[in-house]
Amino acid sequence: MSNWRQMMPTTEAYLLDKVLYQLHHNAEDLAAYNADKAAYLARFRLTPDMAAKISGNDVAGLYEAGVNPYLLRAHCIGVRIPEDVSLAALRSLMKEGDDKWLS
């Protein structure tokens, strides 16, 4: 089994995916997250760094951690990260020559 970044997803990627899935597939979870991010994220076995990536809307950090791109997109929409901001974060990870397929 693989995800987009690793041949075998890391525990970190799995946990981040799990949180984002629950957060954006259940209205009660999103309401609880919006009311108190720290309390909501404390329900999961996240490291402080993992919780900071979610609560800080670190799009680039979540992507680099191996989060499923569809769950990352749902998070951006769900917490209203403007599209230009999320795309800029992802583009900041591109290396020289990575944009050849964008033309």
Rank of each mutant, 00 (worst) to 15 (best):
T10K: 08
T10E: 01
E12Y: 04
E12L: 03
A13M: 02
A13N: 02
A13E: 00
A13Y: 05
L15R: 15
D17H: 05
D17G: 09
V19C: 05
L20T: 04
L20N: 04
Y21F: 14
Y21P: 01
Q22A: 05
Q22F: 07
L23K: 07
H24C: 10
H25V: 01
H25I: 07
N26M: 01
N26W: 03
N26D: 11
A27Y: 04
A27W: 01
D29Y: 00
L30F: 10
A32L: 10
Y33M: 13
Y33K: 14
Y33A: 12
Y33P: 14
Y33D: 14
A35D: 12
A35L: 15
D36E: 11
D36T: 08
D36Q: 06
K37V: 06
A39S: 03
A39K: 12
A39G: 02
A39L: 12
L41G: 00
A42I: 00
R43A: 09
F44R: 05
F44S: 05
R45Q: 15
L46Q: 08
L46D: 07
T47H: 12
T47I: 09
T47D: 07
M50N: 00
A51F: 10
A52Y: 12
A52P: 08
K53R: 15
S55D: 13
S55L: 10
S55M: 12
S55T: 12
S55V: 09
G56K: 09
G56S: 09
G56V: 09
D58M: 03
V59S: 00
V59N: 03
A60D: 03
A60V: 05
A60Y: 07
G61L: 05
A65K: 12
G66V: 09
G66D: 07
G66C: 08
V67W: 05
V67I: 06
N68M: 05
Y70T: 09
Y70N: 12
L71E: 06
L71H: 07
L72Q: 01
L72P: 00
R73C: 10
R73D: 12
A74H: 14
A74G: 11
A74N: 14
I77D: 04
I77T: 00
G78R: 03
G78A: 00
G78K: 00
V79H: 02
V79E: 08
V79T: 08
R80Q: 10
R80V: 03
R80D: 08
I81F: 06
E83S: 12
E83G: 10
V85C: 05
V85E: 10
V85A: 06
V85L: 09
L87Y: 06
L87P: 02
A88C: 07
A89G: 06
L90E: 01
R91E: 15
R91F: 01
